[in-house]
Design a protein around this nucleic acid. Structure first.
Lengths: 344, 344
DNA sequence: AGACGGTGGTGACACGTGTCAGTTACGTGT
DNA sequence: ACACGTAACTGACACGTGTCACCACCGTCT
């Protein structure tokens, strides 16, 4: 066990054939024993011999060969985004992973970094996953969906701000977030609302609908007291925030919805440093209901987002895998409600 | 193209045999053409016919069958942690992924959620990765390393606080972080240092060495002015922080090193709410040099950690894959230096 | 004595691919 | 006229696994 720790590199990887030879049985028997196939009866002494042989050789089955033979796998592909993901998102992702594993799926995150949308889909298809669950950003075209389905994927599910032709869609309508924020500000009597739009590329898939949601809420707000909406581009760094804050007084705004809590924190700090009173002079509201919001002074108002649970997602995947020809579902989810704290 | 969008489920997945049949050539020719095998000459007209046939059928090669035949893959397995990862870590992970892909490796994140260490290693080994790069928490035993190498993994590399027998180790000595923080506080004249130890399980792999580093720096600090170290357990939520802050005066401490910036933020806020003056009454220092530290008032002192770049890691992986029998390296990295701001 | 049924196991094929060794067809040199 | 080289392609095997159909053996019943 402790000898020859080094040149194990040239030792061939043990296969079920090696196990069979060592146990003095056929390869078929080995397969039956190690997979606990109930339809075939193997005597207990033989079972033990096989198990011991496998143990001694350190035999580990070859997943690729297995799924090649089986004609299918239980692999769920989870394309990873290349955008900087927030804490809310990464917690959700972990939850989904757990739930899928509980249903006996093999979850694989696979990055498509640097590839085009269709090239990425092709690369995913090579792995022959039984399901593809694309979270957040799309990066999936109708053509990509066809390629995946053609390669045997039973379920292609997108969870994001918009739907993709051919795929099951869990539409998270980000506009609801903007609407909730705007409604909250209007209710508090604000009438000139700035909307921070992140300068970072990749986030616009989220930020644009959120902005649209603000506009919608404002226009529906009733004509009794018309309000104004002003988009403001800002990057996630101190200089950009300071620049925006310095110009604040000239903008004539009395409120700002800052995309999410992290941007809100950054901007609020810059505003305070520039001598702008929050919430007196300007109300600030973020989104995502992160812990940090409660730590700020004034405490940050935010929009809490109700995401589906990991288990719900996993069960949807499982349902679609079992019945791929079911109707293409389109669920609208994402309930959002504002939480008023001290900053608004 | 737009017809039969539904019952594509029963259509068999096209293989290279189908392509060959459609193009009127042998399967071997298809393989040569699609892989651009330079050693074999195929006429240009034939090449085109094959390519067109593949395109028409939507042929995508089967990665499993390919690597089965080849006897090896270029897959790098990146076990994902189940601990809540910080922003520093997740940025680093993305960087590594990029760099590996640039070297033509297929990066796969694979979670071992809910499995024991050795069961997880076995599950990884089934995928027959050419390399395993375990970041952060270990979750890898010497036995697990043997299983992986036995299954054909050329490189097993751990990057974490401690090394694992048999694997190449990039040791990030977390003690350096604690030492830097303590040295900084001592230099500023503090003599009674509290050390926040997260209550969250899974983080103790980091927090324990950091605490040890504090102790080391204090004991080496010279006997001219002996200092005291006091471990303090705290969870990452407001109640826990408030509880600790309420008892603060009784502890007789004049400084605290709070594991990382996020815990420091939480504690500092609680201390301020409890009327403890920072830094007058108590100096606070965090770690990881996150952006949020600069946004706090007083600005948070921190310990900046110098991580290896993604490219360095990727090149190490590549080197070990090419020469697996090279010496088991043990790199000590992680330079850490304190950044004094206003909170200490 | 021969048919019968159950126990315990095996031989052989298929999955989709890459690649080596051959095999045509054809022009060329002596 | 015949060997020879070369361009262009193909037949067949191997990779490691799961599973179906089949087989040998042995005790039991009529």
């Amino acid at each position: 066990m402790s000898q020859t720790p080094k040149h194990s590199a040239d030792a061939p990887v043990p296969t079920s054939t090696d196990v069979a030879r060592l146990a003095g049985v056929s390869r078929a028997t080995v397969s039956y024993v190690l997979n606990d196939t109930s339809a075939v009866r193997i005597s207990e002494p033989t079972r033990r011999r096989v198990r011991e042989a496998a143990e001694e050789l350190g035999y580990v089955p070859h997943a690729a060969a297995r799924s090649l033979r089986a004609g299918h796998s239980r692999m769920v592909l989870l394309p990873t985004a290349h955008v900087p993901v927030g804490p809310l998102y990464s917690r959700f992702l972990n939850e989904v992973q757990w739930a899928l594993r509980a249903l006996d799926y093999t979850v694989v995150q696979y990055g498509s970094l640097g590839l085009g949308a269709d090239e990425a889909a092709r690369a995913w298809a090579e792995l022959r996953p039984v399901a593809v669950l694309s979270l957040g950003e799309i990066g999936l075209t109708p053509h990509g969906v066809r390629v995946l389905k053609r390669s045997g994927a039973k379920a292609v599910i997108t969870l994001g701000p918009q739907r993709v032709e051919g795929a099951h869609a869990l539409v998270m309508d980000q506009r609801a977030v903007g609407s909730a924020a705007a409604a909250h500000l209007l209710e508090r009597g604000r009438r000139a609302i700035g909307v921070v739009v992140p300068a970072e590329p990749g986030l616009d898939l989220f930020s644009r609908p959120r902005l649209a949601g603000v506009r919608k809420a404002v226009s529906e707000g009733g004509a009794d007291q018309p309000a104004r909406v002003e988009p403001l581009t800002m990057a996630y760094d101190e200089e950009s925030a300071a620049r925006l804050a310095a110009a604040w007084r000239g903008l004539g705004l009395d409120a700002v919805y800052a995309y999410n809590d992290e941007y809100a924190q950054l901007l609020m700090r810059a505003l305070q440093d520039a001598g702008v009173d929050v919430p007196g002079e300007c109300a600030v509201v973020g989104a995502d209901d992160l812990l940090l919001g409660k730590l700020l002074r004034p405490r940050l108002s935010t929009v809490h987002i109700e995401l589906p649970t990991g288990r719900e997602i996993a069960e949807l995947v499982d349902r679609v895998v079992r019945d791929p020809d079911g109707d293409v579902e389109r669920h609208d989810l994402m309930a959002a409600h504002a939480i008023g704290r001290e900053s608004s």
